[in-house]
């Protein structure tokens, strides 16, 4: 049985080289377990996820009213909530972008070689005010209303004996 690559080699050598290199890159990155565009890893939900006592969620509030997460369309909420989550992640990481921390730990004394690049492409605490202004702007845009005040509230949720979720604690975390 002749394979696709056999046909490809005889039909179009240039395309054979391109597709072989892409396949090789994808194979290598899959083995390494890392991904760099366009060599993707398709391992979503492959890590075992434990059932927890409680789950942490972020709820947004606009002018004192809680925002209904599912009233927003998927790409919109991905950007809005994703942006808020990531901003919170930076603040929790001692106000440092997690990618900077990753490379600092990985490279140790050699970190200074990538430091200028990382400082160019990632934000720091000097951007925090602008980041919070963006959350307010994009929130206003998302709900088509000029939001004067917003809050991000951390919720701890647990599932009761009837398998229904209930909020057990809340705490304002942003701004």
């Amino acid at each position: 049985m002749k394979t696709y690559f056999h046909h490809l080699y005889h039909a179009d050598k240039k395309l054979f080289i391109i597709i072989s290199l892409f396949s090789l890159g994808t194979g290598v990155m899959t083995i390494l377990g890392d991904q760099v565009t366009p060599f993707y890893i398709w391992g979503m939900f492959s890590e075992p996820i434990p059932v927890r006592e409680t789950y942490s969620k972020i709820q947004l509030e606009a002018d004192g009213k809680p925002l209904e997460f599912y009233d927003l369309q998927a790409p919109n909420r991905h950007l809005l909530y994703g942006g808020v989550h990531f901003y919170k992640k930076i603040k929790d990481n001692k106000n440092t972008h997690p990618t900077r921390t990753f490379f600092r730990q990985k490279l140790g004394v050699h970190y200074n070689k990538v430091q200028p690049i990382l400082e160019n492409i990632t934000c720091d605490s000097s951007d925090f005010e602008a980041a919070e202004e963006w959350i307010q702007r994009y929130l206003s845009y998302s709900i088509s209303k000029d939001v004067k005040e917003w809050r991000a509230i951390h919720q701890e949720i647990r599932f009761n004996e009837n398998n229904r979720p209930e909020v057990v604690s809340t705490q304002t975390i942003l701004p």
Binding site: T37, G83, T99, D127, A130, W134, Y138
Partner: peptide
């Protein structure tokens, strides 16, 4: 997008 500020290029050199 209303001029976003915080980005995550992550460990993806592209």
């Amino acid at each position: 997008l209303q001029g976003p500020v915080i980005s995550e290029p992550y460990v993806d050199f592209t």
